[in-house]
């Protein structure tokens, strides 16, 4: 049986890799711009935004939760940060405030789920409306533009020729990897997702770790928002609409079970790359962005069905 487990994981991961290779091949045929270094870097840079959110989303989904509010939390955090910088707060302080706000909203999600026992998708659906509304109300619906030059380095800077967003995303993935596979917190999270009651009976502070993952998801959403506005030089209250969708897609494509307790970060990384390539493909081939929702909706459903089939093997 142990062998079966290995085989299944192998099937899932190698399936994803093959899928990516096929995608690369098809895209290279469809557009001669695809395989240029500039475009590949571009894909990675775009992937980094969703990647950072996806790490948080994966933590939540591992514990059998879901976070629909990441896009809205991102929006509220960035408009507050941008506004604070406009009020001459040092960028570092403003960013810290934004990240803390993201964490706070995530914590509220976690509290609703662990303490009040609200189903996660309901709690975060409410938070999505609440935070988006606050972002709109805070700005009066208008974007905050013209950000501090130093702050913008987050989005536009290069270190050793590598764009900052990619570096930050790589660091987040590294931290996520260490957390999930090398620390006891990771073991607790898997235990929590696999069987909440047994985890509780094993003395794992289930409430604490539920709040922890939602808080982490909130902070990471805010962080990726910081990078995004640094690149765009503008914080719009409608920023991040539908981002929860890309993140969920990346995580489930990567083979993490929505029922919790099963999944690998490497899978999520592959999922993020697939989503980024998909977005890039829609751009390069001049397919109207209106098709985005259709394609992604189908991709999520398909990924879940396929992974479900593999699991049943």
């Amino acid at each position: 049986m142990e062998k079966m487990r290995g085989i299944k994981a192998y099937l899932q991961q190698s399936g994803l890799l093959i899928f990516i290779l096929i995608m690369v091949g098809v895209l290279a045929l469809l557009s001669d711009r695809f395989l240029t270094p500039a475009n590949l870097i571009n894909i990675l840079r775009q992937a980094s935004i969703n990647g950072i959110i996806s790490v948080g989303m994966m933590l939540v989904i591992l514990t059998a939760g879901i976070d629909l509010s990441v896009g809205a939390i991102l929006a509220l955090s960035v408009v507050v940060t941008a506004d604070l910088m406009h009020r001459d707060l040092p960028p570092l302080l403003a960013a810290t405030a934004g990240l803390s706000l993201g964490g706070l909203l995530g914590f509220v999600n976690g509290w609703l789920v662990s303490r009040i026992k609200v189903p996660p998708f309901i709690a975060t659906l409410g938070m999505m409306s609440f935070a988006r509304g606050l972002a709109l109300a805070y700005t009066g619906g208008k974007p905050v533009t013209g950000l501090d030059a130093g702050f913008r380095f987050l989005g536009t800077g290069l270190v050793a020729h590598i764009p900052m967003p990619i570096i930050i995303a790589a660091l987040v993935f590294l931290a996520g990897y260490l957390l999930l596979s090398q620390t006891r917190i990771g073991a607790y999270l898997y235990a929590l997702g696999e069987n909440r009651e047994a985890a509780l009976f094993s003395g794992i502070a289930t409430g604490f770790y539920t709040k922890f993952v939602f808080t982490a998801s909130g902070v990471l959403a805010a962080l990726s928002g910081m990078i995004l506005i640094a690149r765009l030089d503008s914080a719009q209250p409608v920023i991040g609409l539908g981002y929860e969708f890309d993140a969920i897609a990346a995580v489930v494509i990567g083979g993490t079970s929505l029922a919790g307790g099963e999944g690998r970060l490497s899978g999520t990384l592959l999922g993020v790359l697939i989503i980024a390539m998909l977005n890039n493909a829609l751009n390069l081939t001049n397919v109207s962005s209106f098709y985005e929702g259709i394609v992604k909706g189908m991709v999520i459903a398909l990924a879940l069905i396929l992974h479900g089939l593999v699991r049943k093997l």
Binding site: G126, S129, F130
Partner: peptide, 15 residues
Amino acid sequence: YYQQVIKGFVFIMAV
């Protein structure tokens, strides 16, 4: 905008 905030809040309170 505030209506949206309040509706999100009412939603959560209802639950």
